[in-house]
Design a protein around this nucleic acid. Sequence first.
RNA 1: GUCCCCGUCGUCUAGCCAGGUCCAGGACACCGGCCUUUCACGCCGGCAACGUGGGUUCAAAUCCCGCCGGGGACGCCA
Length: 465
Amino acid sequence: MKTVKTRFPPSPTGHLHLGGARTALFNWLFARHHDGLFVLRFEDTDRERSRQEYVDSIREALEWLGLFWNEGPYFQSERLEIYREYARRLYEEGKAYYCECSPEELERKRKEALAAGRKPGYDGTCRDKDLPPGPGRVLRLRIPSTGTTVVEDLIRGPVAFDHRELDDFILVRSDGTPTYQFAVVIDDLTMGITHVIRGDDHLSNTPKQLLLYEALGAEPPQFAHVPMILGPDGTRLSKRHGALSILAYRDEGYLPQALRNYLVRLGWSYGDQEIFTLEEMIAKFDLSRVSKSAARFDPEKLLALNAHWLRATPTNDLAEEVKPFLKRLGLPIPEKNYLVEALETVKPRARTLLEAAEMLTFYLVEEVTYEPKAAEKFLTSEMVPVFERLIKELSRVEFTDEALEKLFRGLSEELGLKLKKIAQPVRVALTGKTVSPGLFEIMRVLGRERVIRRLDRALHFLRTR
RNA sequence: GUCCCCGUCGUCUAGCCAGGUCCAGGACACCGGCCUUUCACGCCGGCAACGUGGGUUCAAAUCCCGCCGGGGACGCCA
């Protein structure tokens, strides 16, 4: 049994987006599941649009997702000699021929054909001209005019294409660079790729590639075409569907575990299981459970999964992850223990690291800012005696959740006020807001000194109203 | 236009290959309730789908055909 080898071949013309990440994940998982290898290869033959910054950002995104490659990254732009050699062979063996039709001419014929309701493929004008190589000429593959080619797809089963539907596609452009169709085949062949797992949109290109393998006298890899990911509205995923770059999700406070978990369930399932650790994905992933129909991207489900993984991550680790977000919000980074304890209280309430950082604000600022409406409603003058009494009691009570709760309940009973009537004003005094983690845990974490200082300040505030 | 692929709750999906156990299960979202010092978490309950027409069969979400709908390919882009 040959070692399984998969690849992820992005073209560095944009950031890594959800669709690409899912394809990369599937390839990576398949390789890992079979103890195989995963190759990274940049398809940068389009010199016009390829950019170094995208090479960097794609690598960064893959690494962030934990999808490390065993080989590469390769760059097609550095393999031009190899393609040239194979092109020469194909030409010499008569499997390919040169064509002198100009792009303008081809474009004109394409439009004509489309307007007349015919298929717009190349019409074979130069097929039998027996042209030698020359400037302005492209190399085309000579495709058999009759018969059919069957793609034995691992996900879709056999898919037959009539050769009349295929045309003599371009292998080498007039500037000598290889086209995508040619370069992928040569790369997959020379790199020993055993399984090509890619988007559905490549299915109709596959027979052409198969014919190229045949012309080369080579054994093609196995193909598996996975369904595409559509936007929430069912149209092709694009910029207007919001943040699509994987790195943008990272910067919004999403966890790689959540992204992976969301992505793996888009087009793949394992019974009713929704939550997967990396190890489980590797152990359970297989092509037979990949679905055939396109999936829509649902940001809500991604968020829910992120909330889940946030809660499932040890607070100690989360504390490190949240630091960059605190920094970004202009908040001071406190001592680790304090941060962990504070984070513990906001963890079940936050759905992203960014939200968590925002919720931590009151723990970290010197003086909280009262929300106008909250102060208006709860920091009223009748709270003066309550706060005075609290400050006195708090200086001697033990700062544990239990003791604090006992204190508040006792006070509530003694003063004939519902606990809520006391709790909300104190909450506002301590956090500036009406919504926060549990009051007693907040107090415990803030500690006696901060709590008394904040109550003191609130007392001043309500006396001057 | 031609060819190819796909079609189960709003969304992701299980079930379909090996027809009955499915008046279709899980998850997200949504709605109600419990818990409760606020908000969450958690727990309980609810809403909600086999695109359509025909055929095969004692029996079809599951098999066959047509139609409709969606997506993709048809580039000297990848």
